[in-house]
Design a protein around this nucleic acid. Structure first.
Length: 481
RNA sequence: CGGGGUGUAGCGCAGUUUGGUAGCGCAUCUGGUUUGGGACCAGAGGGCCGCGGGUUCAAAUCCUGCCGCCCCGACCA
């Protein structure tokens, strides 16, 4: 870059100089969110919300294909319900918002704004479930939850966030475990197929698991700066809540039984992952299958005869082929301005048509993530564009995967691990003894945590590099958001 | 809750040290010329200088109390 004029506008902080500021610049400049009058509560504007809608429509289809139905449970939960499962209330109490008054009258029992809905849902399930014939219960809800966070950042951690939470009941422990893993797999496929984000999937340590869970499984994504982002979780809750809430049914043998329970969710945090995995110094880079606009057409020298007509015909042809296309024929801004604007907004593919291209029977294209520029024939443009979009998805996934590999290292000893964690974040693969003291010590000294015990185990040695005891599992560690 | 920063036009900022007519860039509006990497000319509109006290002939500027927001930690999707 030295001595060479940048061909884009420098309104965005360099991501390698100040990644946090880069992130804030990107979401503000691309008009995805705005700060509201209440700290930690954000307005999600159309461009940000459209991404959530894309995620919703993919997942909603997958949930329904696997037999789940949507329901809606109330926003407010009586305190007496929240406190029924001991570990759960201890985990969530510090960050719960309370409703204490109705109008000017103080309530006899205060009500919490749901931080998650296990308790209210279990109280209803207890009322409804009678027989094994009704199982499994396969329900999901799309809603928002509130957790009074101390440190908030748009999408990554906000006091209110949008999510979906699935809550299912099953006859057997095996069936519940299968459901838990099946939903995690749907999340993994969503990240891979829709968001072009590679993941490390696995189980959370006892210390990191959900408050009240028997086992928590996670999809961990890794951001440009090397930090991990827990991007979705699926919990096997066993009978912890069903016993606490006295959910019983008459089983096949006539006895009263407690069902096995799962819950799983992803949130608008995924939007933060998209930004921080794919973004660059020009701004946002959106994966083509999710991008609200996949292709933008910028006409050049619009007033020259035939240019606009040509551009409109091209747009109509692409739209008819099912491509989400925008023709920017506004006269207010120059082509250069439009190039920068749509690159900042992360539109995967740009087409340019001007008098020269029309004469040559060609269309110029520019790929957002790679800056690749070339041309395609005007005839059959829709097919070519569809093929390019498909190629972009694969390239973006590979690029993210490569970047993940570059950040990954094997922990040989604690000193080396400490050194790497203090210099930069990274994805550390290590053997681990399985004891919590070791985990806590590493966290206190380096702020890195066990992100998960990956399903894909590797044998890296016999001893835990942190304490020297015999190793039990291979774990992935790192700093996280 | 600790540490750092910041608050002036819709947005981004200068002005505060040393008190004296509230400014710049972008955006907006009008008219015209332009268009292959953020075009140009001419004109116009827009302010409780975060809020409350105080000092002073005079406060964006000095003193004082409060509040908001951002970033970094501890806690968490």
């Amino acid at each position: 870059m030295a001595g060479k004029e940048k061909d884009f506008v420098k309104d965005i902080t360099d991501m390698d100089v100040d990644f946090a500021q880069w992130y804030t610049d990107v979401i503000k400049k691309t008009d995805m969110v705005d700060y509201s009058p209440v700290k930690g509560f954000m307005v999600i504007k159309p461009y940000g919300y459209a991404l959530w809608e894309g995620i919703q429509s993919y997942l909603d289809r997958r949930f329904k294909e696997t037999g789940h139905q949507n329901m809606y449970f109330p926003l407010l939960i009586p305190e007496s319900l929240l406190t029924k499962e001991k570990e759960h209330v201890e985990g969530f109490a510090p960050e719960v918002a309370w409703v204490t008054h109705g109008g000017s009258e103080e309530l006899a029992e205060r009500l919490c704004v749901r931080p998650t809905s296990e308790t209210i849902i279990c109280s209803m399930y207890a009322k409804w479930l009678n027989s094994y014939r009704e199982l499994p219960y396969l329900y999901n809800q799309w809603c928002s939850v509130v957790r009074w966070e101390k440190n908030t950042r748009p999408f990554l951690r906000t006091s209110e966030f949008l999510w979906q939470e699935g809550h299912t009941l099953h006859e057997t422990a095996e069936e519940a475990e299968r459901e838990t893993l099946q939903q995690l797999e749907i999340y993994r496929e969503m990240c891979s197929e829709l968001l072009a984000i590679p993941l490390i999937c696995g189980r959370k340590s006892e210390r990191e698991k959900f408050a009240g869970a028997h086992a928590t499984y996670t999809i961990e994504a890794f951001m440009h700066d090397g930090k991990a982002l827990q991007s979705g979780t699926s919990h096997n809750l066993a009978q912890h809540f069903t016993k606490a809430f006295d959910i019983k049914y008459q089983g096949r043998n006539g006895e009263l039984e407690y069902p096995y329970h799962t819950s799983w969710g992803v949130s608008t945090r995924l939007i933060g992952a998209i930004i921080m995995v794919h973004g660059d110094n020009r701004g946002l880079v959106l994966p083509p299958r999710l991008a609200p606009t996949q292709v933008v057409i910028v006409p050049i020298a619009m007033k020259k005869e035939g240019v606009l007509e040509h551009a409109r015909a091209l747009r109509d042809e692409l739209a008819a082929a099912g491509i989400r296309v925008l023709l920017d024929d506004s006269a207010e801004n120059s082509p250069g301005w439009k190039f920068n604007e749509y690159e900042m907004k992360g539109i995967p593919l740009r087409l340019e048509v001007g008098p020269r291209d029309i004469e040559a029977g060609k269309v110029l294209y520019s790929i957002r993530h790679s800056q690749e520029k070339a041309d395609i024939a005007r005839d059959g443009a829709a097919e070519s564009v569809a093929a390019i979009l498909d190629r972009i998805h694969g390239e973006m996934y590979s690029k993210a995967e490569k970047s993940m590999q570059e950040k990954t290292f094997v922990v040989e000893n604690y000193e080396q691990f400490k050194k790497i964690m203090s210099e930069k974040a990274g994805i550390a693969k290590a053997m681990w003894c399985g004891c919590e003291e070791c985990e806590v010590k590493v966290k206190e000294e380096t702020s890195a945590t066990i992100r998960c015990i990956p399903f894909d185990q590797e044998d890296l040695g016999d001893t835990c590099p942190f304490c020297g005891k015999p190793a039990k599992h291979m774990v992935v560690m790192g700093k996280s958001y």
